[in-house]
């Protein structure tokens, strides 16, 4: 790693101030950023650790909305998001137990790794990304590979999930990294079904709108049977070509629908 300072602000305001410094970068749980730093692929002057900010932690269900602090770890979401069981189950299967002890929802969404789990939940749920100075709808938030609507120095303080009637996440893992080769989050709301796909696209998480339409009309695995996910723009790599990923999108969607609770 290159040399850098690490600061640990106690409040969002302090963190925002620290991030205004030269070459400052936010550090969530560090489960992706630290390995990146080890490869010397990033050279911040200061890392602003968000892990000591208590106001960014916690899970709170209120009415039909589940609000999760941006600094909440996957383990905490897994344990406390019982109001949204599909989301709790997703969190319980991110990485491994040690990753879940440190990794945070805000860190995952800010990084927007194309194979991460959380972006699919946020997009399929039509979640709202709350930052230190605004609220961003999930549909506007994800802008491609490792790219989001966040501005420089902007911090995800919370994520608000409308709790669906039914939902499920199906992850088909890449055998080495155990990230999703294809992950599909299906959420059924009173006004329709949303389907978000992670792991598959060169542009990161996306909605499979054909499936959403079919499932909104008929929420059953059979409704997807006649559809074909397009292989255009899907990832081709060692672990699967675009055609295979397209196929898995459909299989995982069917399974998510069948398992939705």
């Amino acid at each position: 790693m290159y040399a850098f300072d690490v600061t640990r602000p106690k409040t969002v305001a302090e963190a925002v101030a620290a991030l205004a410094g030269d070459e400052a970068q936010a550090l969530g749980g560090g489960q992706t950023l630290i390995p990146t730093l080890k490869q010397r692929l990033a050279s911040p002057a200061t890392l602003v650790s968000l892990t000591a900010i208590d106001e960014m932690k916690g899970v709170c269900a209120d009415g039909g909305t589940l609000t999760i602090g941006g600094g909440t770890t996957h383990a905490t979401v897994a344990a406390e998001a019982s109001a949204y069981p599909a989301l709790a189950a997703l969190a319980a299967n991110i990485g491994d137990p040690a990753v879940r002890s440190r990794g945070t929802i805000g860190g995952s969404l800010a990084n927007n790794d194309p194979s991460a789990c959380y972006p699919s939940a946020a997009l399929a749920s039509g979640a709202t990304i709350v930052t230190n100075n605004r609220e961003i709808a999930a549909d506007d938030y994800f802008q491609g590979l490792f790219t989001t609507a966040l501005n420089e120095g902007e911090i995800i303080t919370a994520v608000k999930f409308p709790v669906p009637e039914k939902a499920n996440y199906q992850k088909f893992v890449q055998p080495a990294s155990r990230f999703s080769l294809v992950g599909v989050f299906v959420a059924k709301y009173a006004d329709g079904v949303r389907v978000a796909v992670t792991g598959a696209s060169e542009n990161g998480v996306f909605r499979w709108t054909e499936a959403e339409a079919a499932l909104s009309a008929n929420f059953s695995a059979d409704a997807v049977e006649g559809l074909t996910a397009s292989a255009d723009g899907l990832i081709n790599d060692l672990h699967g070509d675009a055609e295979y990923r397209a196929h898995l999108i459909k299989v995982m969607t069917k399974r998510a629908v069948a398992a939705a609770k």
Binding site: V6, R8, G30, Q31, I34, P35, L47, S49, T51, A75, D96, P97, A98, V99, S101, R102, S177
Partner: peptide, 25 residues
């Protein structure tokens, strides 16, 4: 790359990879 887990320790009772956490944290 934070995968093998040989460095696992407990911090405040939680299982973490000590190679993926700064001492300052």
């Amino acid at each position: 790359t934070s995968q093998c887990g040989a460095c696992t320790v407990h911090v405040d009772g939680l299982q973490v990879k000590s190679c993926t956490m700064f001492a300052l944290e």
